[in-house]
């Protein structure tokens, strides 16, 4: 702290080597490069450990595996698998879009952390990329399939959602009956 006492009385012309500015510049630039490398690495590592927003995408896995099989399966099988994959992608995208406003509201209120919000935004981006990829994939099977492909996938999604609900009625009934101890009565009424 106390060493800053420049002597200004006589200033002999000092000769500076040509390398001095070069060394200076290279140190500065080197430091910046190092920083950026580490920063990026850290960010990528952070993204890697980030928990995925959704459980593993099974239809996508199935499609990719089918596509990579050595004796190539029938094109119809591949197409069907692609539609399944598309249906799942649309389900996820819809879910994310639907919840977008709530998540944003939660974030504004301070009820969720930065990390979760980032994960959500990332999932949204990934899902949009997935849709793009699907469109490209569909085009490889048949030129001009994409415009009809997406509505088909959407229909599958809607149909499945409805089906899930219809199929769940039985479970719900059982669960409610158990809670209300009415199981025997219901069973009796079914058998009658």
């Amino acid at each position: 702290m106390a060493e800053e006492e420049p002597i200004i009385e006589d200033m002999p012309l000092q000769k500076i080597s040509v390398f001095t500015p070069i060394i200076y510049v290279s140190i500065v630039i080197g430091a910046l490069i190092l920083f950026s490398i580490f920063y990026r690495r850290k960010r990528i590592a952070k993204l890697q450990v980030m928990k995925p927003f959704f459980p593993p995408d099974l239809p996508k896995e199935i499609y990719l595996q089918l596509k990579d099989q050595d004796p190539k399966p029938d094109e119809k099988v591949l197409k069907a698998a692609l539609i399944r994959r598309g249906a799942e992608a649309i389900r996820r995208l819809l879910k994310l879009r639907e919840n977008n406003q709530y998540i944003t509201l939660l974030y504004q209120k301070g009820s969720i952390g930065d990390e979760f919000f980032d994960r959500f935004k990332l999932a949204l981006k990934i899902q949009e990329l997935e849709i793009q990829e699907l469109v490209q994939e569909a085009e490889t099977y048949k030129q001009g399939w994409a415009p009809t492909f997406m509505p088909v996938c959407q229909e599958v999604t809607l149909n499945e959602a409805l089906r899930r609900r219809v199929n769940a009625i039985e479970d719900r009934k059982e669960q409610l009956a158990k809670e209300w101890e009415l199981y025997q009565e219901i069973e009796a009424s079914i058998t009658n």
């Binding site: 919840n99 969720i112 952390g113 979760f116 479970d171 719900r172």
Partner: peptide
């Protein structure tokens, strides 16, 4: 925040058919 994240992702991923 981990708890909040767990709660929110439960709500988002929750199957509505389940009671």
């Amino acid at each position: 925040i981990k708890t909040a994240a767990a709660f929110s992702s439960y709500i988002i991923n929750n199957n509505p058919a389940k009671l």
